[in-house]
């Protein structure tokens, strides 16, 4: 399996804070939600408030959804981490691909709020265009002057995986030379309470006890940006090479993934459990079936699993941060209803 693209830069805004490169800190704990009034203790993995301009000088994010602001910060950190001078690149050949489950949920809720207060005929215009799901990717293009394809994708359970697959496809087909690939979501009251009403939350959301195994998840928020370059451009500094990826809704998961792997034997399987209570166990079961009972497995980290559809990149960078990087890694996710996503990476 020949890799066609390399991950050469990483930037993130997550409960670990805004960071360039891998994450060296120990695991974070859920925090009490204070952004809205809750009926008793409610916990989640939260991004601590920060001023984007303190991280990226000159950045103006006042009217933007937090997802847009994080996309700007994380993309800037990833570009810096990759050591890229965008001024030296043909920016019409740089793509932006974002994977997100809920898009700009905060400003969408703000628009509903203005309709609740003033009626539909008196809504505030400012949250409307900024609440569009593609606003974060557009702002990344605008800030960095990137005129290549600008794509925002969603996929139940696999928004991050889909974004990486699409970005690699753009490079493979010569539609871009480099892509800024992002995956993330914000946590809002409407999203949190939807999880709660659907019975998806872990008991750890309601008390300060350690996270129990299974039985729901603790919602999380954040965004990770990767710089994906055509293989060969900066191989020496690559964190990993992307070989191939597949997502499907059901059916022949094992056969499809084995066909994708070809002769490659993953030395590491990263379980990208995506929040749904049954996803973690079904991912582990699928991983064992593919890689064998003794395969080295990185279990899903709660902070990344809480990001649900958009957690893949946080799973990936946490695994890269904590494990030796050699051989092939299989990042594997399941949606709990037969769907799966698999990414094959060659670790550097």
């Amino acid at each position: 399996m020949t890799a066609n693209s390399a991950i050469t830069g990483i930037g993130s805004v997550s409960p670990y804070g805004p960071l360039a490169g891998l994450i060296s800190q120990c695991a974070v704990e859920p925090e009490s939600i204070t952004a809205w009034k809750t009926a008793g203790l409610r916990r989640a993995f939260l991004v601590k408030p920060f001023r984007p301009a303190d991280v990226v000088p000159g950045l103006k994010t006042r009217r933007l959804d937090r997802l847009s602001a994080w996309a700007l910060v994380a993309s800037s950190l990833a570009i810096q981490d990759a050591g890229i001078d965008l001024g030296q690149l043909d920016r019409s050949r740089v793509a932006v691909v974002l994977g997100t489950g809920f898009g700009c949920a905060e400003l969408t809720e703000s628009f509903f709020q203005s309709a609740a207060v003033n009626g539909w005929s008196g809504t505030d215009p400012s949250p409307f265009p900024e609440g569009l799901a593609n606003a974060p990717a557009s702002h990344v293009a605008l800030w960095h002057g990137l005129r290549g394809p600008n794509i925002t994708v969603g996929s139940t359970g696999f928004a991050g995986e889909s974004a990486l697959i699409q970005a690699a496809s753009l490079l493979r087909h010569g539609q871009a030379d480099l892509a800024i690939v992002l995956a993330g979501d914000t946590l809002t009251r409407a999203v949190y309470e939807w999880y709660e009403a659907a019975g998806l939350l872990s008991p750890a959301c309601y008390n300060a006890e350690p996270l129990p195994e299974g039985g729901g998840f603790v919602p999380s928020e954040g965004l990770v940006a990767l710089v994906l370059e055509a293989a060969g451009r900066q191989d020496a500094r690559a964190y990993a090479h992307f070989s191939s990826g597949r997502c499907a809704t059901g059916g022949k998961a094992v056969e499809t993934i084995r066909a994708m792997l070809g002769d490659s034997v993953p030395s590491l399987t990263i379980c990208a459990g995506n929040g749904a209570p049954c996803a973690s166990s079904s991912t582990i079961a699928l991983a064992r079936e593919i890689a064998g009972p003794s395969a080295d497995m990185v279990p899903a980290e709660a902070v990344a699993a809480g990001l649900a559809d958009a957690g893949a990149f946080l799973h990936l960078i946490l695994a890269l941060s904590r494990r030796p990087r050699s051989g092939h890694a299989l990042l594997l996710g399941t949606s709990g209803d037969g769907g799966f996503a698999a990414l094959l990476l060659e670790l550097s």
């Binding site: 489950g101 809920f102 799901a133 994708v153 996929s155 499907a248 809704t249 059916g251």
Partner: peptide, 30 residues
Amino acid sequence: RAASYPPAHVADAVGDHLGVRGPRCAVSAA
């Protein structure tokens, strides 16, 4: 009703309706 909020739900609705099992994706570019 709220579960139908994400654009990916439209892809899932089509896929489930036709009973197809390949990749499903949604794109939002205004």
